[in-house]
Every structure is written in C-alpha cells, then in structure tokens.
Amino acid sequence: MLAIVSRATAGHAARRAAAIAPAARRTFFSTSSANTSGEKPADEAAAAGGAAAAAAAAEPGAEGAAAEGAVADHPSVAVISGLETRVNELQTQNKELEDKFLRALAETEHVRQLGRREVDKQKLFAIQGFSKDLLETVDVLELALASVPEAERTSDDNPHLKNLYEGLSMADKELRKVFAKYGLVQHDPMGQPFDANIHDALFEMDHPEWAPGTVAYVQRKGFTLHDRPIRPAQVGVVRRAPE
C-alpha cells in the first residue's frame, strides 16, 4: 500500500515539475529581456516566485488527494479480500474431507478386523464335519470296552481278551488326546441339571434321590468343539413329582 502511495506522489511531483518548468523559463527570458530593455525585472521575478510558492503550498493537499484516489481505485484490496475468503472456504472443505477420510479409514479397518475374525473362525471350526464323523468311532470304542467284564480285564485266564482290551484302551486314550489337541471335548452329563442347549432329553424317569430336572441316564455322551456344541448328549431326565 505504501508503494502505491509513493508511486502516486512521485507521479504528481513529476507533473508539477513539468508545469513549473515553462514558467521558470518564461521568467528567466523575461528577466533577461527586462535587463536588456531596461524594464523592471524585480517585480516580475517576485510575481513568478509568488506563483511558485502558491503552487508549492497547494501541493500537499493535492498529493494527499491523489494518493487517496490511487489507493481507493486500486483493485488489490478487493483481490486480497476475495483470496482470504477463498482460503477460508478451502480450509473448511479440507477439514470436511479429512473427517470423511478418517471415518472411511476407521470403517475399512473395522471391516478388515471382522474379515480376519471370520477367517480365524472358519479355520478354527474347519474340522467340525470331520470331527462329527469320528464321534461314532469313539462311541464304538466305548461300547467295546464296556462289553468286557471287569474280572476279565486283568485276568490271565484269557490273555487274548486281556490284550485286546488293553489295545482298545490305548487306542481310545490316544484318540482322546488328539481330540483335546484340536479342541474337541467329550461331556458326560450324568447327575447334572438338564440344559436344553447341550442335552437332548429322550425320556423322563423316576429317581429316588435326585431332584427333578436332573440327568439320571446317559445313552450317548455329548461333544463340544472349542466350546461350541457339535453333538448334544442323549439323556433321560428325572421327572417332576405330581402335584
């Protein structure tokens, strides 16, 4: 802004100098003629000096008016104001876009985590179908072991039956170790309260000691895979006493 005022002042001073120069030359030549012709050069010189002084006295006001007009008419103020407004608008838009970007990033990360959990879950329960097929094998082994009388399991009278029982027992133990390694666990609900989520009631029965709703008979044990029931236990439940 000061540069604009300085340029306006310099221009006005140049115009004033250009206006005063002819008067000075006329004064000079008039003085020379007067000296030559014998007229009064002092009065004319005084008149020229008074005109120059009057012009100089009027100069500050004219310079100020010219400077104010140059500042008022200059388009830089409006341009700067418009640029500031545009900068504020762009900053607001940038803030909105940044907020949208952060929200989209958070949502993408959430979806990625859900996908990772789903993949881990699928890996965890990928053997569910295979495990169900092996449960029948466990049931058969249990029936085979239970069919051998207690006295024959350790008796040397029938060594072949004893060896067969020991071999089946070892196979059953190893199979259960593999089940436990992969999160497959067998549950025997005998004497526990009936739970419809993991038990399948086949019938009701009387029991002289246990409370109603207690599992008093187990036909087939249940299994869970990583705490998820994959086969409910088939049980008989103590019935409620008639009122």
Rank of each mutant, 00 (worst) to 15 (best):
L102N: 02
A67K: 08
A53H: 00
G69R: 07
V178D: 00
E68Q: 02
A201Y: 02
K123Y: 10
E150V: 09
P229K: 01
P75M: 09
A21Q: 05
V77H: 01
A18P: 03
F194G: 06
A21T: 10
R220K: 09
A171D: 01
G213E: 06
E209A: 15
A78S: 11
T214G: 04
D133N: 02
A201K: 12
H160Q: 04
I230F: 03
L141P: 00
V138Q: 05
A201N: 03
A17F: 11
P60T: 10
N158T: 07
A18M: 14
E96A: 15
T9K: 09
L175S: 01
E84T: 12
R112W: 07
G69D: 09
E209N: 11
V215M: 03
T224P: 03
G50Y: 03
F130M: 11
A201G: 02
E44W: 08
D156G: 04
T27L: 14
E142S: 06
H226A: 11
G115K: 10
Q93Y: 11
D206W: 02
T36L: 15
S32Y: 10
R15H: 07
G82K: 09
E152D: 12
Q91D: 09
G129D: 06
V178I: 12
Y182Q: 06
V71T: 01
D200T: 09
L145K: 01
A34C: 11
V148D: 01
D172N: 04
L184D: 00
V215N: 00
L102Y: 00
L168T: 01
S33D: 15
E243D: 04
I4N: 08
E98F: 04
